[in-house]
Amino acid sequence: MLNDQPGNDCFVREQLRTAADTTNQFYGAFFQDEISLSERLTLTVGARYDEFKRNIDFSVIAALPDLQNAEGRSEAVSPKAALAYQLDSGLVYASYGRGFNSNFGPVWQWEPDRYARDEAPTFIDSYELGWKGQTQNKQLSWETALFYLRQTDRRIFIDNPDPEGPPTLATTGQKYSSRGLEAAVRYRPVRSTELLVNYTYLAPEWDELILAGSFGAPDTNFSGNTPQGVPGHIVYAEVSHEFSEQWHGSLSYEWYSDYFVDLSNSIKTGQYSLMNLSVSWFPINNPDLAFDLSVTNVLDEDYFFYFAGSRSAVTNVTPGVPRQIRLGTKVRF
Protein backbone atom coordinates (compact mmCIF):
# COMPACT_ATOMS: atom_id res chain seq x y z
CA MET A 1 0.00 0.00 0.00
CA LEU A 2 1.35 3.42 -0.89
CA ASN A 3 1.21 5.93 1.93
CA ASP A 4 2.34 9.05 0.10
CA GLN A 5 -1.16 10.34 -0.69
CA PRO A 6 -3.63 12.26 1.51
CA GLY A 7 -6.21 9.95 3.05
CA ASN A 8 -3.87 7.00 3.56
CA ASP A 9 -3.34 5.84 7.14
CA CYS A 10 0.34 6.81 7.38
CA PHE A 11 0.22 10.01 5.40
CA VAL A 12 1.72 12.97 7.26
CA ARG A 13 1.18 16.41 5.81
CA GLU A 14 3.01 18.38 8.50
CA GLN A 15 4.84 17.40 11.67
CA LEU A 16 6.70 19.95 13.77
CA ARG A 17 9.96 18.39 14.99
CA THR A 18 11.85 21.46 16.16
CA ALA A 19 11.00 25.01 17.15
CA ALA A 20 13.63 27.52 18.19
CA ASP A 21 14.38 31.22 18.50
CA THR A 22 17.80 31.97 16.99
CA THR A 23 19.98 35.07 17.18
CA ASN A 24 23.07 35.32 14.94
CA GLN A 25 25.60 38.14 15.20
CA PHE A 26 28.45 38.70 12.73
CA TYR A 27 31.19 41.32 12.90
CA GLY A 28 34.07 41.91 10.53
CA ALA A 29 36.82 44.42 9.76
CA PHE A 30 39.42 44.40 6.99
CA PHE A 31 42.41 46.47 5.99
CA GLN A 32 44.83 46.23 3.06
CA ASP A 33 47.78 48.23 1.82
CA GLU A 34 49.79 48.12 -1.41
CA ILE A 35 53.45 49.09 -1.23
CA SER A 36 55.51 49.83 -4.36
CA LEU A 37 58.97 48.40 -3.75
CA SER A 38 60.13 49.38 -7.25
CA GLU A 39 58.67 50.24 -10.66
CA ARG A 40 57.86 46.57 -11.25
CA LEU A 41 57.64 45.04 -7.75
CA THR A 42 54.57 45.47 -5.50
CA LEU A 43 53.90 44.13 -2.01
CA THR A 44 50.33 43.77 -0.75
CA VAL A 45 49.60 43.11 2.93
CA GLY A 46 46.31 42.89 4.78
CA ALA A 47 44.35 41.29 7.60
CA ARG A 48 40.72 40.59 8.45
CA TYR A 49 39.05 40.21 11.84
CA ASP A 50 35.84 38.14 12.13
CA GLU A 51 33.61 37.36 15.09
CA PHE A 52 30.57 35.06 15.03
CA LYS A 53 28.01 34.58 17.82
CA ARG A 54 24.94 32.34 17.96
CA ASN A 55 22.31 31.81 20.64
CA ILE A 56 19.42 29.34 20.22
CA ASP A 57 16.49 28.80 22.59
CA PHE A 58 14.72 25.53 21.73
CA SER A 59 11.05 25.21 22.67
CA VAL A 60 10.26 21.99 20.77
CA ILE A 61 12.68 19.07 20.32
CA ALA A 62 11.74 15.82 18.55
CA ALA A 63 8.11 17.01 18.37
CA LEU A 64 7.90 17.38 22.19
CA PRO A 65 7.90 20.59 24.25
CA ASP A 66 11.35 21.15 25.71
CA LEU A 67 13.40 24.10 26.91
CA GLN A 68 17.09 23.94 26.02
CA ASN A 69 19.69 26.52 25.10
CA ALA A 70 22.66 26.27 22.75
CA GLU A 71 25.21 29.00 22.18
CA GLY A 72 28.54 29.47 20.47
CA ARG A 73 31.18 32.10 19.79
CA SER A 74 34.11 32.09 17.38
CA GLU A 75 36.63 34.75 16.31
CA ALA A 76 39.89 34.99 14.39
CA VAL A 77 42.36 37.31 12.68
CA SER A 78 43.22 36.20 9.13
CA PRO A 79 46.36 37.68 7.49
CA LYS A 80 47.26 37.87 3.80
CA ALA A 81 50.34 38.87 1.80
CA ALA A 82 51.24 38.94 -1.91
CA LEU A 83 54.32 39.86 -3.93
CA ALA A 84 53.83 40.70 -7.63
CA TYR A 85 56.42 41.44 -10.32
CA GLN A 86 55.27 43.23 -13.46
CA LEU A 87 56.49 41.82 -16.80
CA ASP A 88 56.25 43.44 -20.21
CA SER A 89 53.26 41.25 -21.10
CA GLY A 90 51.86 40.32 -17.69
CA LEU A 91 52.97 39.59 -14.14
CA VAL A 92 54.13 36.78 -11.86
CA TYR A 93 53.09 36.63 -8.23
CA ALA A 94 53.37 34.67 -4.99
CA SER A 95 50.68 34.94 -2.35
CA TYR A 96 49.67 33.65 1.07
CA GLY A 97 46.30 33.95 2.76
CA ARG A 98 44.44 32.45 5.69
CA GLY A 99 40.78 31.59 5.58
CA PHE A 100 38.51 31.20 8.60
CA ASN A 101 35.16 29.48 9.12
CA SER A 102 33.23 29.50 12.39
CA ASN A 103 31.84 26.01 11.60
CA PHE A 104 28.43 27.05 12.92
CA GLY A 105 26.55 25.54 10.00
CA PRO A 106 22.73 25.70 9.69
CA VAL A 107 20.60 26.01 12.82
CA TRP A 108 19.03 22.56 12.50
CA GLN A 109 22.47 20.97 13.00
CA TRP A 110 22.41 22.33 16.57
CA GLU A 111 19.25 20.37 17.43
CA PRO A 112 20.32 18.35 20.53
CA ASP A 113 18.06 15.39 19.79
CA ARG A 114 19.76 14.65 16.46
CA TYR A 115 23.28 16.11 16.66
CA ALA A 116 26.03 16.12 19.23
CA ARG A 117 28.64 18.81 18.58
CA ASP A 118 32.37 18.59 19.19
CA GLU A 119 33.66 21.39 17.00
CA ALA A 120 36.27 24.10 16.63
CA PRO A 121 36.75 26.83 13.98
CA THR A 122 38.36 25.84 10.69
CA PHE A 123 41.49 27.57 9.40
CA ILE A 124 42.82 27.25 5.84
CA ASP A 125 46.34 28.38 4.97
CA SER A 126 46.69 28.85 1.21
CA TYR A 127 49.85 29.40 -0.86
CA GLU A 128 49.83 30.27 -4.57
CA LEU A 129 52.40 30.89 -7.29
CA GLY A 130 50.97 32.27 -10.52
CA TRP A 131 51.54 33.89 -13.88
CA LYS A 132 49.13 36.12 -15.84
CA GLY A 133 49.75 37.57 -19.26
CA GLN A 134 48.43 38.65 -22.65
CA THR A 135 49.75 39.06 -26.17
CA GLN A 136 48.70 39.64 -29.80
CA ASN A 137 47.22 43.04 -28.96
CA LYS A 138 45.22 41.49 -26.08
CA GLN A 139 43.61 38.90 -28.34
CA LEU A 140 45.24 36.08 -26.35
CA SER A 141 45.42 36.07 -22.56
CA TRP A 142 46.22 33.41 -19.97
CA GLU A 143 46.30 32.70 -16.26
CA THR A 144 48.00 29.78 -14.53
CA ALA A 145 48.74 29.03 -10.89
CA LEU A 146 50.15 26.31 -8.67
CA PHE A 147 48.52 26.16 -5.26
CA TYR A 148 48.79 24.38 -1.94
CA LEU A 149 46.37 24.65 0.95
CA ARG A 150 46.17 23.08 4.37
CA GLN A 151 43.04 22.96 6.48
CA THR A 152 42.88 22.22 10.21
CA ASP A 153 39.76 21.27 12.14
CA ARG A 154 37.80 20.33 9.04
CA ARG A 155 34.15 19.67 9.90
CA ILE A 156 32.65 16.23 9.24
CA PHE A 157 29.61 14.23 10.37
CA ILE A 158 29.98 10.69 11.70
CA ASP A 159 28.01 8.13 13.67
CA ASN A 160 28.12 9.13 17.34
CA PRO A 161 30.29 6.59 19.24
CA ASP A 162 28.37 7.43 22.45
CA PRO A 163 25.33 5.11 22.51
CA GLU A 164 23.57 7.37 25.02
CA GLY A 165 23.85 10.48 22.87
CA PRO A 166 22.26 11.69 19.63
CA PRO A 167 22.84 9.44 16.58
CA THR A 168 25.06 11.91 14.68
CA LEU A 169 28.21 13.71 15.80
CA ALA A 170 29.44 16.92 14.19
CA THR A 171 33.16 16.91 14.82
CA THR A 172 36.38 18.64 13.84
CA GLY A 173 40.01 17.99 14.69
CA GLN A 174 40.78 16.47 11.29
CA LYS A 175 43.54 17.78 9.00
CA TYR A 176 43.18 18.13 5.24
CA SER A 177 45.46 19.37 2.47
CA SER A 178 45.23 19.87 -1.26
CA ARG A 179 47.56 20.84 -4.03
CA GLY A 180 46.95 21.38 -7.69
CA LEU A 181 47.10 23.45 -10.85
CA GLU A 182 44.70 25.88 -12.48
CA ALA A 183 45.17 27.17 -16.03
CA ALA A 184 42.91 29.28 -18.26
CA VAL A 185 43.33 30.60 -21.81
CA ARG A 186 41.12 33.20 -23.48
CA TYR A 187 41.28 33.91 -27.21
CA ARG A 188 39.32 36.54 -29.15
CA PRO A 189 39.75 35.84 -32.89
CA VAL A 190 37.40 38.72 -33.73
CA ARG A 191 35.88 41.46 -31.60
CA SER A 192 32.50 39.71 -31.29
CA THR A 193 33.71 36.20 -30.40
CA GLU A 194 35.64 34.89 -27.40
CA LEU A 195 36.84 31.35 -26.62
CA LEU A 196 37.69 30.21 -23.09
CA VAL A 197 39.28 26.95 -21.91
CA ASN A 198 39.92 26.29 -18.21
CA TYR A 199 41.62 23.23 -16.69
CA THR A 200 41.93 22.29 -13.00
CA TYR A 201 43.97 19.50 -11.45
CA LEU A 202 43.24 18.60 -7.81
CA ALA A 203 45.14 16.26 -5.48
CA PRO A 204 43.54 16.47 -2.02
CA GLU A 205 44.44 14.24 0.92
CA TRP A 206 43.38 13.57 4.49
CA ASP A 207 46.55 14.32 6.44
CA GLU A 208 44.84 13.07 9.58
CA LEU A 209 41.41 11.42 9.76
CA ILE A 210 40.88 8.98 12.61
CA LEU A 211 37.28 8.07 13.47
CA ALA A 212 36.45 6.55 16.83
CA GLY A 213 34.91 3.09 16.76
CA SER A 214 31.34 2.56 17.91
CA PHE A 215 30.36 0.20 20.74
CA GLY A 216 33.94 -0.78 21.57
CA ALA A 217 35.08 -1.33 17.97
CA PRO A 218 38.63 -0.19 17.14
CA ASP A 219 39.29 3.25 15.65
CA THR A 220 39.47 3.53 11.86
CA ASN A 221 42.37 5.46 10.36
CA PHE A 222 41.65 7.07 6.98
CA SER A 223 44.78 9.27 7.00
CA GLY A 224 46.37 9.46 3.57
CA ASN A 225 43.11 8.75 1.73
CA THR A 226 41.50 11.02 -0.84
CA PRO A 227 38.41 12.95 0.37
CA GLN A 228 35.03 11.98 -1.00
CA GLY A 229 33.42 13.73 -3.94
CA VAL A 230 36.50 15.55 -5.28
CA PRO A 231 37.27 14.95 -9.00
CA GLY A 232 40.95 14.95 -9.90
CA HIS A 233 40.44 16.71 -13.25
CA ILE A 234 37.96 19.41 -14.30
CA VAL A 235 37.67 20.95 -17.78
CA TYR A 236 35.51 23.93 -18.67
CA ALA A 237 35.17 25.36 -22.18
CA GLU A 238 32.99 28.20 -23.42
CA VAL A 239 32.39 30.08 -26.65
CA SER A 240 30.51 33.40 -26.50
CA HIS A 241 29.42 35.51 -29.44
CA GLU A 242 27.74 38.88 -29.99
CA PHE A 243 25.39 38.33 -32.91
CA SER A 244 24.38 41.99 -32.80
CA GLU A 245 24.03 44.80 -30.31
CA GLN A 246 20.78 43.21 -29.19
CA TRP A 247 21.61 39.51 -29.19
CA HIS A 248 24.43 37.76 -27.28
CA GLY A 249 24.84 34.02 -26.79
CA SER A 250 27.16 31.48 -25.17
CA LEU A 251 27.63 27.71 -25.16
CA SER A 252 29.64 26.01 -22.41
CA TYR A 253 30.87 22.50 -21.71
CA GLU A 254 31.93 21.05 -18.34
CA TRP A 255 33.68 17.73 -17.68
CA TYR A 256 34.44 16.15 -14.30
CA SER A 257 36.53 13.02 -13.85
CA ASP A 258 35.77 10.10 -11.54
CA TYR A 259 36.12 10.63 -7.80
CA PHE A 260 35.98 8.52 -4.65
CA VAL A 261 32.56 8.18 -3.09
CA ASP A 262 33.60 6.53 0.18
CA LEU A 263 36.10 7.32 2.91
CA SER A 264 37.96 4.02 2.44
CA ASN A 265 38.55 4.84 -1.28
CA SER A 266 37.24 1.46 -2.42
CA ILE A 267 34.83 2.86 -5.02
CA LYS A 268 35.69 5.49 -7.64
CA THR A 269 33.04 6.63 -10.11
CA GLY A 270 30.81 9.61 -10.90
CA GLN A 271 32.47 11.03 -14.06
CA TYR A 272 30.07 13.21 -16.00
CA SER A 273 29.84 16.09 -18.45
CA LEU A 274 27.40 18.95 -18.93
CA MET A 275 26.49 21.33 -21.71
CA ASN A 276 24.81 24.68 -21.02
CA LEU A 277 23.29 27.34 -23.27
CA SER A 278 22.55 31.02 -22.69
CA VAL A 279 20.99 33.72 -24.88
CA SER A 280 20.63 37.39 -23.92
CA TRP A 281 18.52 40.12 -25.51
CA PHE A 282 19.10 43.83 -24.96
CA PRO A 283 16.25 46.08 -26.18
CA ILE A 284 17.74 48.71 -28.47
CA ASN A 285 15.49 51.48 -27.10
CA ASN A 286 16.25 50.70 -23.41
CA PRO A 287 19.94 50.10 -22.59
CA ASP A 288 19.13 49.58 -18.88
CA LEU A 289 17.02 46.49 -19.55
CA ALA A 290 18.16 42.96 -20.43
CA PHE A 291 16.48 39.54 -20.77
CA ASP A 292 18.36 36.27 -20.38
CA LEU A 293 17.29 32.72 -21.29
CA SER A 294 19.53 29.90 -20.07
CA VAL A 295 19.32 26.12 -20.22
CA THR A 296 21.50 23.96 -17.98
CA ASN A 297 22.28 20.35 -18.84
CA VAL A 298 21.05 20.81 -22.40
CA LEU A 299 21.53 17.10 -23.23
CA ASP A 300 19.51 16.10 -20.14
CA GLU A 301 22.19 13.77 -18.81
CA ASP A 302 21.14 11.25 -16.16
CA TYR A 303 22.81 10.88 -12.75
CA PHE A 304 22.78 8.32 -9.97
CA PHE A 305 22.88 8.99 -6.26
CA TYR A 306 24.37 6.32 -3.99
CA PHE A 307 23.78 6.01 -0.27
CA ALA A 308 24.43 3.60 2.60
CA GLY A 309 24.31 3.60 6.37
CA SER A 310 27.99 3.03 7.02
CA ARG A 311 30.37 5.98 7.29
CA SER A 312 33.12 3.95 5.54
CA ALA A 313 30.93 2.58 2.73
CA VAL A 314 29.40 4.51 -0.14
CA THR A 315 27.90 7.57 1.49
CA ASN A 316 27.64 10.20 -1.20
CA VAL A 317 28.13 10.98 -4.84
CA THR A 318 27.93 14.54 -6.11
CA PRO A 319 25.18 14.53 -8.75
CA GLY A 320 25.13 16.90 -11.67
CA VAL A 321 22.48 19.55 -12.11
CA PRO A 322 19.19 18.62 -13.80
CA ARG A 323 17.94 20.28 -16.94
CA GLN A 324 16.71 23.71 -15.95
CA ILE A 325 15.21 26.44 -18.12
CA ARG A 326 15.55 29.89 -16.62
CA LEU A 327 14.24 33.22 -17.85
CA GLY A 328 15.61 36.28 -16.11
CA THR A 329 15.31 40.05 -16.36
CA LYS A 330 17.90 42.63 -15.34
CA VAL A 331 17.04 46.27 -14.79
CA ARG A 332 19.73 48.87 -14.15
CA PHE A 333 18.75 52.04 -12.31
Rank of each mutant, 00 (worst) to 15 (best):
G173L: 08
W247T: 09
E111L: 04
D300M: 08
N101T: 02
S95A: 15
G173A: 03
G328C: 02
D118H: 04
Y306N: 10
A170G: 14
I124G: 05
D66N: 15
E245D: 12
S192G: 01
G213N: 06
L181K: 00
D88C: 06
I124L: 15
N225I: 02
I210M: 08
L251M: 14
F304H: 10
A63I: 09
P161Q: 05
D302A: 12
F282T: 08
E143H: 12
G165A: 15
R186Y: 07
D9K: 14
Y115V: 06
P322C: 07
W110N: 06
S257V: 00
E111P: 05
A20S: 06
G97C: 05
S266P: 00
G133C: 14
S252N: 13
A217Q: 11
R54I: 05
N69M: 03
S59E: 11
L64F: 05
D66I: 01
A62T: 05
M275A: 15
T193F: 03
S178Y: 00
N103I: 01
S310K: 06
V92C: 09
S78R: 09
A116P: 04
Y201Q: 01
T200L: 07
R311K: 05
Y127L: 13
I325R: 11
N265T: 08
N160G: 01
G46D: 03
Y303Q: 13
G130V: 01
W206S: 04
A81N: 05
Q5Y: 02
L196K: 10
K175C: 06
G46P: 00
P79R: 08
G180V: 03
R150P: 07
A183V: 11
P218G: 07
P79Y: 07
S95L: 14
A237I: 05
Y201W: 12
A76P: 00
P167M: 09
E164I: 02
E128T: 06
L209Y: 13
R73F: 09
P121Q: 01
L16Q: 06
W131T: 03
N221F: 07
T269H: 05
L129F: 11
A70S: 13
H248G: 06
Y187D: 11
